[in-house]
Nucleic acid binder design. Structure first.
Length: 186
DNA sequence: ATGACGATGCACT
DNA sequence: GTGCATCGTCATG
């Protein structure tokens, strides 16, 4: 399956199967260990109320980056996917594997486990900004490569009010690089 | 023109 | 666990 086919599926499927893939920007990045799915019919999605200047990238081709500013401070990076316009996967945490020294400088931290353990942290470590909004994530300066995972945990998404009941957050089971642990299964 | 509110992170208790 | 910084985006007047 090529990348376009991989991405042209429901964002929950893509978000789950993306765990273990590697993403880099200018050679800095790591294994994707945490994602969240956003669907255009989901009230929590930025695309729910239609296309605007901010979310335009979500309505473009799959494989592009959708970058937005959160809380006026942080950047967050999504990979556009889905069977139709308006779907994306939020990249929430990476296991740093490449350019770790540069990440430490950008983050002002030593501990690898805290370098990319959150959507805003990840963007600071990789130096993602609005300038990357709309860029293809399988071409330079981005790169995207498949990879395996050690099992996927599922739970509710973080920091949203609407659609909070949907189990659309995915993470590598047992990873030490998550933004937060997953609620214990029951 | 103005106001409300975040798909957060960090310091502090 | 709680509080707050900080500002772009969108809805409303």
């Amino acid at each position: 399956m090529d990348l376009e086919a991989f991405l042209t599926r429901h964002p929950t499927i893509v978000a789950r199967e993306l765990i273990g893939w590697t993403v880099t920007l200018d050679g800095v990045g790591g294994r994707i260990v945490e994602t969240e799915a956003y669907h255009h019919e989901d009230p929590a999605s930025h695309s729910f109320s239609g296309r605007t200047a901010r979310n335009a990238a979500m309505f473009g081709p799959v494989g592009r980056a959708y970058v937005y500013r959160s809380y006026g401070i942080h950047w967050c990076l999504n990979l556009v996917c889905g069977e139709g316009p308006g779907d994306a996967v939020l990249l929430r945490a990476l296991e740093p594997t490449a350019g770790v020294t540069l990440m430490r400088e950008r983050r002002g931290l030593d501990e690898a486990r805290a370098l990319c353990s959150g959507p805003g942290k990840l963007c600071q470590a990789l130096a993602v900004t609005r300038a990357h909004d709309g860029l293809a994530m399988d071409h330079a300066p981005f790169a995207l490569a498949p990879g395996a995972n050690a099992g996927v945990a599922v739970g509710p998404r973080i920091g949203i009010s609407r659609g909070a009941d949907l189990p659309w957050r995915f993470g590598e089971a047992g990873s030490r690089f998550l933004s937060r642990p997953f609620p214990k299964a029951r």
